[in-house]
Design a protein around this nucleic acid. Sequence first.
RNA 1: GACCGCGUAGCUCAGCCGGUAGAGCACAUCACUUUUAAUGAUGGGGUCGUGGGUUCGAAUCCCACCGCGGUCACCA
Length: 500
Amino acid sequence: MSDNTAKANPPVTNPRLAKEEKLKALLSAGHTAYPHVFKRSHQAQELQNKYAELAPGAETEDKVAVAGRVMSSRNNGLFLDLQDASGKIQVFCHKDSMPADQLARLDFIDIGDIVGARGTIRRTPRGELSVRAVEIEILTKSLQPLPEKYHGLSDVEQRYRQRYVDLIMNEDSRNVLRIRSKIVQSIREYMNALGAIEVETPMLHGIMGGASAKPFITRHNALDADFFLRVAPELHLKRLIVGGLADVVYEIGRCFRNEGLSIKHNPEFTTIESYHAYKDYNDIMDLVEDLVRSIVLKIHGTDKVIYDGKEIDFGKAWPRRSMVDLVKDATGVDFMAIADANDAHAAARKLQIPVDPKAGWGKVVEAMFAEKVEHTLIQPIHVIDLPLEISPLAKTHRNNDRLVERFETYINGWEIANAFTELNDPKIQLARFEEQVSAREAGDEEAQMLDDDFVTALEFGLPPTAGWGMGIDRLTMILTDSKNIREVIAFPTLKPKKLA
RNA sequence: GACCGCGUAGCUCAGCCGGUAGAGCACAUCACUUUUAAUGAUGGGGUCGUGGGUUCGAAUCCCACCGCGGUCACCA
């Protein structure tokens, strides 16, 4: 208003308030802070590529229009660094190139604002490709101060809670999520090329099944019913094979497990699961190996990847070793020579590995594997022929009734994929479900529930089928050298901030 | 869930054997028209995570709580 009011107010020094003041000034000067559109001619990286050979000091008449966020400003706005989704380009705002009214707009522009600039391409004598601006325009006024330009945003909590700030500031964060997108896209392309069809099955399940896990429970009001958020899409996908929808179906989507968080576990995570009629687990081993190798090649251009300083070689043929053999290599104990659970427990005690006293032979073997073998499996390997006891949905091994035709693929000591020849005998499936129910009643919260309708589906007839699932988050971690699963998830689960 | 560590300005960090809070960036004003973390001068900005305790006095010591990270346990 009057000069008096202006003088009465102390100078605005809070960065946030200063931006509000500048917004007001911008509006009173007759500009808009949020115009509807700006016609760009190029992205920054396109120009960097197109003019890669332009010599320092060279001026062109080539007119371009660029837009992006102002990441830094030097010499009083003479040089602005614009960042767009492709990269960066400098905007050069010289008084000799800009009409006075355009030059005056610089007063309203802050670091963090999104601006558009029109002008000609040049390379400065110091070698920086620049747009010599004739016109400049605020496309979006930013009201929040950006983190410090040199160190950026490093506070882990804030990076995840305000991922948009992290993405503005950290190219590494942008790259990880971009690679994740490419991985998912590569999987789709691969599956579609097989003639598979992509499907979507329910996330709200009335019965928990498809994996051993603790579920989230939620409520549908109108139906007055509780639902489980799915722990796996498995049982629905097999129903689609029963229905003959396609010989190969796959789903890429979220699963939810109500368990602990860790650098390898987020409560919601993404898997691909796929089912293949008239195939067995041997076929799936070939498929998983070929698929993963092709993704690695597409992402990295080589079949070798460095994770945490270790080279992982996806190129060589992946070994196929039985779980019991691997345990034998690591411990000297041949569990196939051990007939019953008591002897298995005795062997575990001798190896000083704690095991749940209720565990049967199969769970003891699994515990030995988890303790002695798992972490050593850095290079890709298919661990095959797992105990039946821990595999209620897999078909009994054709040569050994204590085992199933199942494999887990390990890379970097982590289970990346899990697959089996599907159990399709409805009577055996019913019996396996009943064992799960008993385990549940005995206190095993992760045991599955009896899915009657799934048994009915099997009674209609599931063709010989093999299926598999793969954790996309973990694969992405390995391919982006990420040490924490939260890095590969745009918005990882965090405890909600309590309101004061 | 258990244990260990961390929480100071918008951001990155000092300060922590108790004596009433500092730097750089950012912000404001000024100077400067070929910079690259631009530069120089001046200035403003803090419930030191929250609550309680010990003390003449607490960012600093103690306790509880909240949030985050790491390790372990369960799990993909």
